[in-house]
């Protein structure tokens, strides 16, 4: 298609202005994180103060909270992904009574906001003494990720060629073998997308860990940041450094697997 030079110039201006709008707040935080702390005398490195990260790390006890976040994320992602592969396999390749109704239940689950379940979850799990445990924080998020994961993996298994499954079955392969030795290896991209999305959702989740661990035993990094904010209202540099620390893990995964993030978040929203 032919486009005039003027039009192309306008396009680039829009591209750059909009990208700048998206980046500006991020740059603001990065700049603040590297700026001198108020009242501090140190000259820093070429005017930059990477020492802020060290100070924020130790003052906010982020080594502890990041470790909790990793523990919660690994638990949620591994359980949810395995359960979703199994259920997606059943929905995607087998015929059985009640499959439609059951599948609609999972679809419904995707829409349920955390706000709708967190109140009874807290009071019921407190009753059985489970609040302030890893399970109180992880299990509700596992359930949320399974709702999406079942939908997502079913969509993948439905596209896998039936001839492949038939051939393997004729060769005497059990359904378990068909799943783990043939379909899952071929479906690595779909599993990968589900994994990075579940990781991001769990890492960034706020309400569930806030409510389910009231004494802070299982405080995740975003919560620690919110509390750190309350304690360091004036310490802009430290707060910004802490924010960067909390965001970094997901951003790094995003930079390496951005196609998966974009694909999953856009296609995952398109229901049949």
């Amino acid at each position: 298609m032919s486009t005039s030079a003027a039009e192309r110039a306008v396009n680039y201006v829009i591209l750059i202005v909009f990208a700048a709008f998206a980046l500006a707040p991020i740059v603001t935080v990065l700049a603040a994180a590297l700026s001198p702390q108020s009242g501090a005398e140190s000259a820093g490195l070429a005017g930059l103060h990477p020492g802020n990260f060290v100070d924020a790390w130790s003052e906010g006890e982020f080594s502890r909270y990041l470790r909790t976040s990793v523990l919660v994320a690994v638990t949620v992602v591994s359980v949810a992904v395995i359960a979703s592969i199994l259920s997606g396999f059943a929905f995607g390749t087998m015929r059985f009574g009640g499959s439609r109704v059951l599948f609609y239940l999972f679809l419904l689950g995707i829409m349920v906001p955390a706000e709708a379940i967190v109140v009874p979850l807290f009071y019921d799990l407190r009753e059985v003494g489970l609040t302030n445990t890893l399970w109180a924080v992880a299990l509700p998020q596992i359930a949320q990720s399974i709702a999406f994961g079942t939908y997502w993996m079913r969509a993948y298994f439905r596209t896998s060629p039936p001839s492949l499954i038939e051939a393997a079955t004729l060769d005497g392969a059990s359904p378990r073998r068909v799943l783990w030795s043939i379909l899952v290896p071929i479906g690595r991209p779909a599993v990968m997308t589900l994994t990075v999305l579940a990781f991001m959702w769990t890492w960034n989740e706020f309400l569930i860990p806030l409510v389910m661990s009231p004494n802070g035993d299982f405080r995740t990094a975003p919560l620690a940041l919110a509390i750190f904010k309350g304690q360091h209202v004036q310490a802009t540099a430290l707060l910004a450094a802490a924010a960067v620390l909390v965001a970094l893990p997901v951003v790094i995964v995003y930079l390496f697997a951005q196609r998966h993030f974009i694909r999953g978040m856009l296609e995952g929203a398109v229901r049949e």
Partner: peptide, 29 residues
């Protein structure tokens, strides 16, 4: 409409706010 280069990078950049924890976004703003 126009053929612009750098659309891939543009996509990566403008999608970035979606992957940041809301707490981080709130601190920035």
């Amino acid at each position: 409409r126009g053929q612009v280069r750098g659309l891939g990078l543009f996509r990566t950049v403008v999608f970035l706010p979606q992957v940041l924890a809301m707490v981080v976004v709130a601190v920035a703003w």
